[in-house]
Design a protein around this nucleic acid. Structure first.
Length: 365
DNA sequence: AAGGCGTGGTA
DNA sequence: TTACCAAGCCT
């Protein structure tokens, strides 16, 4: 791996900073988290933006801030309500980690987001990127904020051919940013790199002819901008077959279950379901599963829909049955029998929202 | 280091 | 339809 000093040698740092920051000042998008530099709002936006598109985040950010306008509000909220505000956004541990960290800020830092790298990076859910983003944007501290955009943009400008899928490569980009970041305006420098990646220096077909830092770009000079960055691909995802059931009682109430606090879709609510083994019939498995795990006696009816749902690392194929509850349900913290209206207060993963929708629209007998 | 962890958009 | 992507973090 090349040394950052060698890579940055002969790079016109001052002119690059001026061109980048000048462009960002003039062309930046008007986004809700850019209204002010409130560290809490910067923090919330950066967590939401992790692996998530700007257009997707905007309505969630506005709703979240109106429900939880300050660190105090979020710290005092029920986790159930925080997850509900996150429903549909994905990577739900972000929401639980954010609330955990916000409570830490309230209790350990008097409600003020700390200003040092050591303290910020220890907050739950705040990694190297988010640490740099909060420090530079909210507090003007010259720390790198290296995300996928920054690695793509700088790999092209500085002609870096290391594989950006390797964790080690991010550290090289950290060093490069330390070497070239503006100390006068680290906020606009970092945001400028990311905005450039989002608007101009895009993955598939970069708009080099419109690029404000074209004259600094070594990949453009060589005509290799589309070959960078180098990124090895990951393997195929595995398929999992599930049987699920929407169980109602004679009054129309529906049975829902809270998922484990660990792992996939942690602490979200779902319709009872089980991973299918191939030797038993699905109906048979569902019936014994409901009796053994929940103590619920039910009569499984017909499947009314099938759902395919793709995650980043696996795919669910779900056959969904309607069913009737026979006898009394012992409710608990993780098992509830609710009216459909009451169920709206609970956060469901999108796959289970699809089941709910299909159930309500199914052919009635 | 590599895999778990969501969702919706795009080619 | 498949594949990849979009402002990563945790273990």
């Amino acid at each position: 791996m090349k040394q950052s000093k060698e890579i940055v040698k002969d790079f016109n740092i001052a002119k690059f900073q001026e061109d980048l920051i000048g462009w960002f000042t003039a062309e930046q998008r008007d986004l809700p988290w850019r209204q002010d530099k409130d560290p809490y709002k910067v923090w919330v936006s950066e967590i939401m933006l992790q692996q998530t598109r700007v257009d997707t985040v905007i309505p969630y950010f506005n709703n979240f801030i109106s429900k939880f306008p300050t660190i105090e509000h979020l710290a005092d909220a029920d986790e159930e309500d925080v997850l509900k505000a996150w429903e549909g956004l994905g990577y739900y541990s972000r929401a639980r980690n954010l609330q955990h960290a916000v409570r830490e800020v309230r209790d350990e830092y008097g409600g003020i987001v700390p200003e040092t790298k050591d303290e910020v990076s220890k907050l739950r859910g705040v990694g190297p990127y988010t640490t740099g983003a909060i420090l530079s944007i909210a507090y003007g501290v010259p720390e790198p904020a290296v995300d996928g955009n920054v690695m793509r943009v700088l790999s092209r400008i500085l002609f870096v051919w290391e594989d950006i899928a390797k964790p080690k490569t991010r550290k090289l980009f950290d060093e490069l940013v330390y070497a070239i970041i503006s100390h006068e305006n680290p906020s606009f420098f970092n945001q400028g790199l990311m905005e450039l990646g989002a608007l101009i220096c895009t993955p598939k077909s970069p708009a080099c002819l419109l690029c404000p830092v074209q004259e600094h770009c070594r990949a453009f000079e060589e005509g290799t901008q589309k070959e960078l960055p180098v990124k090895t691909s990951k393997k195929t995802v595995k398929a999992v077959e599930l049987a699920a059931t929407v169980l109602t009682d004679e009054s129309g109430k529906v049975l829902i279950h809270k998922r484990s606090s660990k792992g996939l879709l942690a602490n979200l609510w779902e319709f009872p379901n089980i991973e299918i083994q191939k030797d038993l019939s699905k109906e048979e498995e569902l019936t014994s599963f409901l009796t053994e795990k929940y103590g619920v006696e039910a009569e499984i009816g017909q499947p009314f829909t099938t759902i395919s749902h793709v995650f980043s690392h696996l795919t669910w194929h779900i056959t969904v049955y309607e069913g009737k509850i026979r006898g009394k349900v012992e409710e608990s913290e993780t098992l509830k029998l609710l009216t459909w209206e009451e169920a709206e207060q609970y956060a469901f993963p999108v796959s289970h929202q699809k089941m709910k929708k299909a159930f309500k629209e199914r052919q009635q007998d």
